[in-house]
């Protein structure tokens, strides 16, 4: 990567520099990531990809402001991230991320009102606008326990997008869904991106999902997570063979060490 190329880029929206993350369990101090660097540009669909134990979720939590790096800094629009805030909306994997005591529209409107973005009618209108985007208008007054897993995740996405954050942080949002629903949700997410061109930082352990969703992919190695590569994905609608080739290449990179081990046996 030449420095000349970097200079032509605008300053990044999200800048992660030399970030080392550690957390404590009852008995151990675990280093989750070691000196990770990456930069997310506006309207990027930036993927953090790696096997379990590579610290990708921990990294996302740090960007969310839930934990502070022991080394390095994270900047959003030039501001250092110190605590969670509505400018970085999280979408979690768990279905229980919706407030069970609020209906779908109340869940979305509550986020807008609590964070002080909008009040009353304006919040409700904005909520309905985004609920419509995820095709849940009919269920606007249902409580979360009446919805299927895929619908709950759509509400969470609508909630995240309605806040119009600087960056949307998604932590394996489709991992707990069945395969058919997952595919449809991926297509819908890309459709939504085409409409609003929001910036998203997306964590996944699925190579196929990374290639499909992302335009830029950060590969992390496990224990502790270190950057292995940062690569461009294939554009949407490109030859499926290209995508398959990229998937194979990433697969080889991620499992290179393991293959060597196998060969030595």
């Amino acid at each position: 990567m030449g420095s000349a190329l970097e200079q032509t880029l605008p300053p990044p929206l999200l800048d992660v520099r030399g970030v080392t993350l550690q957390y404590k369990t009852r008995e151990h101090l675990v280093t989750a990531t070691y000196r990770v660097d990456f930069a997310v540009q506006r309207s990027d669909r930036f993927i953090l990809l790696g096997p379990s134990g590579c610290g990708k979720s921990t990294l996302l939590k740090a960007v969310g402001g839930y934990m502070a790096p022991v080394e390095g800094e994270i900047h959003l629009k030039g501001q250092k991230i110190t605590r969670p805030g509505p400018d970085r909306m999280m979408v979690f994997q768990e279905f229980d991320q919706l407030l069970p005591w609020k209906t779908v529209r109340q869940n979305v409107a509550f986020a807008l009102e609590t964070s002080g973005k909008l009040r009353g009618k304006a919040a409700d209108d904005k909520a309905m606008q985004y609920i419509e985007k995820v095709h849940l208008t009919r269920f606007a007054d249902s409580y979360p326990h009446m919805l299927s897993g895929g619908m709950k995740q759509r509400v969470a996405i609508a909630r995240g997008m309605a806040m119009e954050p600087d960056i949307l942080l998604m932590d394996e949002p489709f991992a707990a869904l069945d395969a058919l629903t997952r595919q449809r949700m991926q297509d819908e997410l890309l459709g939504l991106w085409e409409e609003t061109k929001f910036t998203v930082l997306f964590v996944t352990h699925s190579i196929a999902e990374a290639v499909k969703i992302g335009n830029r992919i950060l590969l992390l190695s496990p224990h502790p997570g270190q950057v292995k590569a940062e690569m461009n994905s294939v554009p949407a609608g490109a030859d499926p063979a290209l995508a398959a080739a990229l998937e194979a290449r990433i697969h080889d990179m991620l499992f290179a060490d393991k293959v060597e081990e196998d060969e030595h046996v």
Partner: peptide, 14 residues
């Protein structure tokens, strides 16, 4: 209360 819900609340700035 699930850690996810707490994180959601803090995400709103609470």
């Amino acid at each position: 209360v699930s850690p996810t819900l707490r994180m959601v609340g803090r995400n709103y700035g609470l």
